[in-house]
Amino acid sequence: MNLKKTIEDVTVNLLRLAVTELPKDVKEALKQAYHHETSQAGKTQLQAILDNIELAEKTSTPMCQDTGTIIFYITAGADVKGLDKVEKALYDATRRATTEVPLRPNAVDPFNRKNTGDNTGRNIPYINWEIKPGNGIEITVLPKGGGSENVCAMGMLSPGEGIRGLKKFVIDTVVKAGSKPCPPNILGVAVGGGADIAMKLAKKALLRPLDKPNVNPELAKLEEDLLEAVNQTGIGPMGLGGKITVLGVNLDYAVRHPASFPAAVAFNCWAARRASARINSDGSTEYLTHEVR
């Protein structure tokens, strides 16, 4: 197979799928949210969201005008030949998807304010690499919306405060964010490692499906406690008041320096877009998050 071309084509598909159709677990969580929400204003927002995602899916149109910054997570088999072609394939796919889907051009030079026009530029799309044994490649795309990115927070907490400090930090961050990140949100929360490591883990945690509990029972319990706590804030869908502010909290961690307690909270908006596929060594492709008809 032509690895570069296969990756490029699959990635264009993934970008289209991601921005036009939410994964099943997110759709289901939004439906449940509508069911459980008691505030009328909140229910109206959730109904509009459900109508919007149905229309977007039917017409293959981006569900939100902000199609995000494009982030990739690649798990490559150590035996795959031609891994040096992957980066170019992902960049080319991003350019193609920008015109073919279309995606909004969202890549702006911070210094001269010029929009590159094709969603690519220095360090963007950003590629997270992981090497594992085997000869397949798994590609995940996370088109990350700007509104929810703007309220992500990083805190170097006190080790003495520990988990209590973490709980307070998460609650304060959600309260401060209010209506800005287009709730109901998904929260990725991570502690330990270091400032950059915690935020990377928090963002990656956004990828875990909402119907998959944490494999660590202690963390699963903490996720539930945090979810209950932030949903008592009353911010509600789109900040108009209600019970459902957050759909799920996904935790991860790294061991920490004895003197440090880095904590990171990453937000995703209700349009929690992601898509994954596995390319096998024979060139066959399985889509993991979406049904491809």
């Binding site: 709980k167 304060d172 309260v175 209010g178 209506s179 406690d225 008592q232 009353g234 911010i235 108009l240």
Partner: peptide, 23 residues
């Protein structure tokens, strides 16, 4: 102003949550 109402309620709720969690 509904947003302002929600915001002030949220701040009250924040304190209640702190208490509940023993923070």
């Amino acid at each position: 102003n509904l947003f302002e109402d929600v915001r002030s309620k949220t701040e009250e709720n924040q304190k209640l949550i702190y208490k509940k969690l023993g923070l």
